[in-house]
Design a binder for these strands. Sequence first.
DNA 1: GAGCACTGC
Length: 675
Amino acid sequence: MEDHQNSEAPPTFIPALFKPPSLLPIARHRAALLYLVETFPVVIVVGQTGSGKTTQIPQFLNDAGWCNDGKIVAVTQPRRVAATTVAARVAQEMRCELGQEVGFSIRFEDVTSAKTKIKFLTDGLLLREALVDPLLSRYSVIMVDEAHERSLSSDVLLGLLKKIRKRRPELRIIISSATLQAEDFLNFFAGGEEGVRESDGADELGGDVGRIISLEGRMYPVDIHCLEEPTEDYVERAVKTVLDIHIKEAEGDILLFLTGREEIERAIDLISDKISELGIKSPSLQALPMYAGLPTDQQMYVFEPAAEDTRKVIISTNIAEASITIDGIVFVIDCGFVKLRAYNPNSGIETLTATPVSKASATQRAGRAGRTKAGKCYRLYTEQASNALEEATVPEIQRSNLAPIILQLKALGIDNIARFDYLTPPPAELIIRALELLFSLGALDDYAKLTKPLGLRMAELSVEPMMAKVLLSAPSFNCLSEILTIAAMTSLQASVWFYHDDRKKATETARRKFAVEEGDHLTLLNVYQAFVTRGKKDAKWCRDHYINYKAMTQAVSIRNQLRRYLERFGIEVAESLNAPEVMRVGGMDKEEMIRRCLTMGYFSHAARMQSDGSFKSVNGLTLWAHPSSLMFNRKADWVIFHEIMETGKKIFIRDVTKIEKGWLLEYAPSFYHVK
DNA sequence: GAGCACTGC
């Protein structure tokens, strides 16, 4: 928890949301809210963004004595930035230093103290705290914010809280949700208790378990327009709509929702073409992209007010639907699609595909037009299509690889995974696939019980199960220091390399300097070792080699955290910084030890190169090396890979390393049915 | 010879 180099600077856009507490609509609900929390174990709070629920409710609870006797009020957030910025705001309102009475806790950063009464943290981190303190006994109240987003960790957290509540009747649970899915949450907590309540005539929803309270949000009406006829090309149609608005409508900025970088760039090009074509001068139109992969400095432009006589049009992915709020939007254009990740339990492949939005999503997007005054929303689909949309987005728990979360539940002592109380149960195939994987890795025994110490340790490590197995196998291959690095590097979400569209050749040449013949994992090791020896204090070195400095410092943090876990297990880490190919251990090259060790965890991610350069997976699928992989243009026979994902028409594998076929049989005989 | 929506430990 000592790594502070990752602390995000509070973004400038969030404080704009904050109003003086006395002006917030929630102030009028204070007494009612406290009464409900006093009386019922579960309270569902329905309120719009800007209602002040996140900043005010914890303070009300503190004033009412819920933090007496050393107890803590916990507020979970789905995102790290939210936890840090909201904590800072509440500390300011309470006139205390951040980290004292009010603090936050996120991965790599714990800004709390013995005095902390109100603690903001990510939902994933609270779930991890339960591994150490299964009843979460430090907390008198736990507020799960933004529960309607239905993230994997908040869903599991709610299931866990329902279980904890039976052992801790004094615990208070507050669930905050921006949309009207409140009844689902209340029904969930009331469910399973109805049997005992039936006779005493508690026919009201929720019975004695809880109540819903609705806070007034500040929203202006939004006029919604659908298309008469469906469009063939919504990017083109969106651009036409942008120009129609710009020419005909009064002032106000435009927010256009598209699905990804490619579409966004195309829309921006089309808009600039149209502007010159139509000779638009004043008022002028400024198109700005917004997506997660955009460098931070470029993201910041969307929050700056446009120049005089200029209308901003922000062209964004789904990031503007939940994660960020942009002021001054009066017009929203909604293409009706979102890219969603899904996991196919039969093939074990993740897909990333554009999917129609849900009604809840469409409503949320339209609402972005009504934050400052009455607005308009143009949907690039027909009313009929709009009526046919699903009510809500399929929760993450129903479309994810469940191996990590099942491992965590097992470690929490929840043995019967199928009968765990899920808000929405995942499909059986997802559970079966996850159990099979965990069994083949040795994390579960024949009775599906967590093995000790292997399975338990795998659950505690903050990397996915296959890599956790590799890490715990590394000591016996004499390559723990190297595997620690590889584990950290492969769990980065940001790319290690910068991509310059205009300087592709130079990027390639830079990358080739670090390339190791055997594959991507050893190449990543090479980059890391070069970084810590030469580039750590030298951002210029990183720039010269097209290496992402921020991603590399992140890798250092992850590696430190993993090393601390291992040390807690009593596993010594002998650090070595030698180039892998020069080390020989017992007649075997170190690089071979590393590749053998990787096979211990990734044996099910094996494939063989075909004559056309594609790969054939062990279950017969045709795979392609991702262009970012060394194996994209090299020859190989058998390989293992870190990740497999389907986009467009091809299935890509990323982080690919050469192995020997024999190792598969040697390290995973039961998986490959060797007698 | 081509590309990853968004989070989190």
